[in-house]
Design a protein around this nucleic acid. Sequence first.
DNA 1: GAAAAAACTGCAACACTCCTGCAATTGCAA
DNA 2: TTGCAATTGCAGGAGTGTTGCAGTTTTTTC
Lengths: 137, 137
Amino acid sequence: MDAVKILSESGLRATKQRVVVLELLIKKGSPLSHSEISSMLAEPLDKVTLYRTLQTLQSAGIVHQVQGLDGVWRFCAHDQGMEGCPGDHPHFLCLHCGKMVCLPEQHMPRVEVPKGIKVEGKQLVVYGCCAECAPEQ
Amino acid sequence: MDAVKILSESGLRATKQRVVVLELLIKKGSPLSHSEISSMLAEPLDKVTLYRTLQTLQSAGIVHQVQGLDGVWRFCAHDQGMEGCPGDHPHFLCLHCGKMVCLPEQHMPRVEVPKGIKVEGKQLVVYGCCAECAPEQ
DNA sequence: GAAAAAACTGCAACACTCCTGCAATTGCAA
DNA sequence: TTGCAATTGCAGGAGTGTTGCAGTTTTTTC
């Protein structure tokens, strides 16, 4: 899917910065943090612009946003047609390398909450050690 | 349960600072952030000491630690005999007032992960609007 | 008890994430 | 092409959490 097309279809301006960030997210497929994105970009991008870009993409529903145990937000652009999107699935976080992986084939559980509470969403993060880090221990 | 007794049974020194923090956590019952604890204490406590105290209590298994969508760690001291402790249950976070509540009667779901990944734990945060904030909207 | 050892606290300084305000620039439509 | 709204980049700052180290308190040992 073309980044420019996705942006314009969502009513957003296809600026160079947005296209570059979105293309990177689509290419990688797994959730990336702000600093990961920043270091992967060929041309440096102002950090505030990157925050705002990600915020905009998230508001438009193009990317979804998850948080690891490290308190850092990660952003992921899934194929728009993908089941259970955006972000309606668990994520795995490797505590050793900090890499995050989507688990889109899994479902989110149903959680009962006390009366009066209005649920807007939920987030399930599974953490541990990924396949690449495990042998090193 | 007496804070001094809990500390000494865990092999920790029952210093004034630890007792005060632990007593507050037991009294409140719901997960509190560092800044919330700090502002609730009668006598000011150095922030580094508070971080280390909470870290120590968590390592000893006296409190459990959860993170909200705001990226802030919250600590909660449950009754030691409580089912599914420490921290093996979902939590609810109010996005409006930032208050967090334990949902200890709920179970954590089972999540299948790709081969090679070693799971060490999981965290499920349900977010939305609590009963006190809902009418204000 | 008193001295030695260990554990703990508090201070200074710092890294990192993320946000606000504002001026300069850019993309898009007429 | 021109005008304007949307977007970007810069300066500065708030909040969370950490490290190093010196000084204090508690426990242990004699």
